[in-house]
Simulated scan of single mutants.
Amino acid sequence: MTSSRTAVITGGLSGLGAAAATRLRADGVQVHTIDLADDADVRADVSDPAEVRSAAEALGPVDILINSAGVVGPNAPLWEIDPAAWDRVFAINVRGTFNMCRAFVPGMRDRGWGRIVNLASIAGKDGNPNMSPYSASKAAVIALTKSLGKELATTGVLVNAIRTRS
């Protein structure tokens, strides 16, 4: 990978996002993190389309997008889940991925090159007991990734999901 590439990583200050940032920097990629933490390169809530648009305008062209921001949410049987907690998990895990792709895909398409990696989970395929919001949201991320990958199949922009063990 050449040093002329630029990456954006949501949730890039912890967990898999931080590991991806470290690795890409070691490969010479210019990395920008988007996170709610104060130390992020850009502080933004990925579930808010206006904040994502503003972040995209501030960052400019991006070659690599890693959607790592996510939350697990409540650990309880489905019938005990507060709808607001359900909505929060979907807002971050699914709408955040949607918002980021929506903001950065057009530029990648225009340049004929891009790489998008969406963090999903094996829970999105198999379902975890007492984690219905998380499992359902990660299933949505998997489906979103498959659909977007097919939409971009002839553009030079590749889209993949990584299914973690959580």
Rank of each mutant, 00 (worst) to 15 (best):
161 A>M: 02
134 Y>L: 08
128 N>P: 00
126 D>Q: 12
99 N>S: 09
154 T>R: 12
72 V>M: 14
70 G>C: 05
109 R>D: 06
66 I>P: 02
70 G>P: 02
2 T>C: 05
37 A>G: 12
119 L>N: 10
123 A>D: 05
71 V>L: 15
3 S>L: 00
117 V>T: 11
112 G>D: 11
166 S>G: 14
135 S>P: 06
80 E>R: 13
113 W>G: 01
59 L>D: 03
46 V>A: 06
65 L>N: 04
109 R>L: 13
94 V>G: 04
163 R>L: 14
25 R>S: 13
49 P>C: 07
156 G>E: 02
89 V>R: 01
124 G>Q: 05
78 L>M: 14
152 L>K: 01
67 N>L: 07
98 F>V: 13
61 P>H: 08
143 A>L: 10
156 G>D: 01
79 W>A: 12
84 A>M: 09
85 A>H: 07
43 R>M: 09
163 R>Y: 00
45 D>F: 08
126 D>V: 14
144 L>K: 07
119 L>S: 07
136 A>K: 05
70 G>N: 03
143 A>E: 12
127 G>K: 09
67 N>P: 04
92 I>V: 15
28 G>H: 10
159 V>Y: 00
102 R>A: 12
143 A>R: 10
33 T>D: 04
105 V>I: 08
117 V>H: 08
70 G>A: 06
121 S>L: 08
56 A>R: 03
27 D>L: 13
19 A>S: 14
39 D>T: 10
132 S>M: 14
70 G>D: 03
77 P>F: 12
88 R>S: 13
89 V>T: 13
2 T>W: 09
139 A>V: 03
54 S>A: 15
86 W>Y: 13
164 T>W: 00
18 A>Y: 02
111 R>E: 13
72 V>D: 12
11 G>D: 02
153 A>P: 01
116 I>R: 00
8 V>P: 04
42 V>D: 04
130 N>Q: 13
17 G>H: 04
107 G>N: 03
18 A>K: 12
124 G>M: 08
100 M>K: 02
124 G>P: 02
